[in-house]
Nucleic acid binder design. Structure first.
Length: 286
DNA sequence: CACGAGACCTGTTCGC
DNA sequence: TGCGAACAGGTCTCGT
């Protein structure tokens, strides 16, 4: 699913002026926002999309509340309302549309928030993995997340200490949302390439200096991803451009852009992992 | 407790 | 051309 840069792009679009932009535009930069809109009704079209509370409770409580802001925590979209908070996780295939003029419900729409002014927010999710929560206390859902990569109080030394405790490989560790929040399969591979670290390297083998450089690499790829409005792959097209700038992800068999060595792919932690065996050579590889 | 495999889903692409 | 297998940006649960 969308990783941190894609979620950040969507969240920024949700903050757009209420009447600015084109409803239904493919480009997130040209879409109307939702902050300040009053929810008048809601529909749950696939019951499992609602993680909590019950459908009846959700429909009764979400109405007559105005969206106060649009934030991001890890890969979660956070929409504080007046009394409670809506949390949305897009997982693998989730997407958000904001539209008006009551266009027909689209295939794979799983939940709809109707606003008093005629606009609506549609949560579309082909694979049905996405989830929505309406909670009183966001800590019940977000409490276990690790630090935000851009938190200025999160330093290379902190990452080092977190990695150093584990014998699991670095690729798996970067995907662990309790260790650091927001990184997914694409940006893990891209960050490890920039950091010149082999994805199979055990966390405990990584030095403090390498962890420092790795955090800078993570911030670098995420920053570039956000600047390019995220990645648009396959049928989930959101107007992002970062997919045209991958250095290793989905470049299996192509020459490394740095050294010309053929990019390899192997499965780590049940996820496809792409890397340059020369640039990301490490002495200790299990 | 840490770790890996399986489950949850649908749609597209790959390989024979 | 057809058809099943493999694969896809994520995370939870269960068994060892």
């Amino acid at each position: 699913m969308p990783e941190l840069p894609e979620v950040e792009t969507i969240v920024r679009s949700l903050r757009h002026p209420l009447e600015g932009g084109l409803a239904n535009s493919k480009n997130m930069n040209d879409r109307p926002g939702v902050v300040g809109r009053l929810i008048s009704s809601a529909q749950i079209l696939w019951s499992k999309t609602l993680a909590e509370p019950s459908s009846e409770e959700f429909l009764a409580n979400v109405v007559q509340q105005t969206i106060q802001s649009a934030e991001r925590r890890g890969k979660f979209i956070v929409l504080p309302l007046e009394k409670q908070t809506l949390l949305i996780h897009l997982r693998m295939s989730g997407d958000i549309r904001v539209e008006n003029d009551q266009p027909p419900i689209q295939p794979h729409d799983r939940a709809i928030l109707n606003f008093e002014d005629g606009y609506r927010l549609a949560f579309n999710d082909t694979r049905k993995f996405g989830r929505i929560w309406l909670v009183n206390d966001t800590r019940t859902v977000l409490g276990g997340l690790g630090p935000e990569p851009f938190d200025e109080n999160f330093h290379g030394q902190d990452l080092f200490e977190r990695l150093h405790r584990s014998s699991r490989n670095i690729k798996t560790l970067l995907l662990d949302q309790t260790l650091i929040a927001g990184i997914g399969n694409i940006y893990a591979d891209e960050a490890l390439f920039r950091a010149r670290l082999h994805p199979a390297l055990p966390g405990k083998e990584i030095s403090a200096g390498q962890a420092e450089f790795l955090l800078a690499s993570i911030r670098g790829v995420l920053t570039e991803g956000i600047a390019r409005n995220g990645s648009s792959i396959d049928w989930v097209y959101r107007g992002g451009d970062f997919q045209n700038h991958f250095r290793v992800y989905q470049r299996t068999g192509l020459p490394c852009l740095e050294c010309g060595t053929v990019i390899e792919k192997r499965v780590i932690n049940q996820r496809s992992t792409h890397f340059c065996p020369k640039c990301q050579f490490s002495v200790k590889i299990p």
